[in-house]
Design a protein around this nucleic acid. Structure first.
Lengths: 191, 191
DNA sequence: CTAAACGGAATGAACGTTCATTCCCAATCA
DNA sequence: TGATTGGGAATGAACGTTCATTCCGTTTAG
């Protein structure tokens, strides 16, 4: 029988260490030590380090997306919906800096690029509210006519940069600032 | 006598390999091989790998900034100046994908964070036209009143994301698209 | 000829992964 | 009930590999 709480400990330790020191700064031995587990034990739960890394990301997405969707109403005006999702995401990153750092590490690595390619080409699951919102906005002539990826770039680029600046201590984001940032993003993509 | 062209070969090989495979996918032995140089020779030019990596970045900045500044006229309207610098930077990234990938690798690593911290705290040199432009814009009430780092986030975030999408082949940026992206960034930060 | 530059084999540290062994506990038996 | 045993979970020392760096014999420039 596989015990969930041991797996949880491994996941927690791995996320902490990788978020803080990067994939290469978090050796399996260190992860095992922090999880108070034998080095070999990790391999009972995860086939290898790559799989640990991608499973970790999946776990994270599954907890994150529902939280962001919370309170989302598809019949509200586009701008309002955009602000809701954007502030939700940015707030999540601010409140869960470990998750944010992990997501960043993941996306700036071969894992992340492969993941992104899959998502763009294969219509994979994810937080599709953004995509739907952009498509609706473009077809209703409310949002500038850019390829979808660029609308993502214009929205998430600043969001991620701002979150990074906050997490690294270069600026302190409060609710007011979070909202103003997302509003500025909207100004960037709206016609 | 230290031969410049040998150093250049090392720099070229290192940049190519690191840009393509990341810091950890470019061992010194491989860099040496691609530079057609003995492994030990690298250490006659660079004390260690860390120093090679940061020197490489400095070299790159020194070639990049003058190119972007080219044709910059401080007496033009703010918006025009912003578009000039922004499109210049984005175009540089598009035209020099290796440089772009290297800059990205660098910034998403402990080296980059330290570098950024120095720059923000210590008023280090760099491309200060952007900073001056933002400060002028805020004080003249043309640009939204955000902390400087956030104006950077709102401008460079989309720019970098867009460049990445182009380099990874998710979209193809031409001159028209480049200009429209930077204009959208301006819409995001202007009042 | 001398000294500096060079090359690449040698070195040792660090890593991911494996596997022989130990531990734990529930089922079984007397 | 208390002792025995079977088997899956857990362990961590050991292994093979990879890497940055060093060392030293050879080549080259002056």
């Amino acid at each position: 029988m596989i015990k969930q709480d041991k797996r949880d400990e491994i996941v927690r330790a791995a996320k902490e260490l990788i978020a803080e020191h990067g994939f290469h700064g978090a050796p399996m031995a260190m992860i095992a030590e922090h999880a108070k587990v034998g080095a070999g034990t990790i391999y009972r739960y995860f086939e290898n380090k790559d799989i640990l890394i991608t499973e970790l990301y999946k776990d994270l997405e599954e907890r994150m997306f529902p939280l962001i969707r919370e309170g989302y109403e598809a019949d509200k005006p586009l701008r309002e919906r955009f602000i809701h999702l954007g502030t939700g995401l940015l707030r999540y990153f601010i409140e869960n800096p470990l998750d944010f750092r992990y997501v960043e590490q993941f996306h700036n690595s071969p894992y992340g690029v492969a993941h992104r390619r899959d998502k763009l080409l294969g219509e994979k699951e994810g937080c599709n509210e953004f995509r739907d919102l952009f498509e609706e906005g473009v077809s209703r002539q409310i949002i500038k006519e850019f390829p979808l990826v660029l609308l993502f770039a214009l929205s998430f680029g600043p969001l991620v940069s701002a979150a990074r600046d906050h997490v690294l201590g270069f600026v302190t984001l409060d609710d007011v600032l979070i909202t103003r940032i997302i509003e500025a993003c909207w100004d960037g993509i709206k016609k």
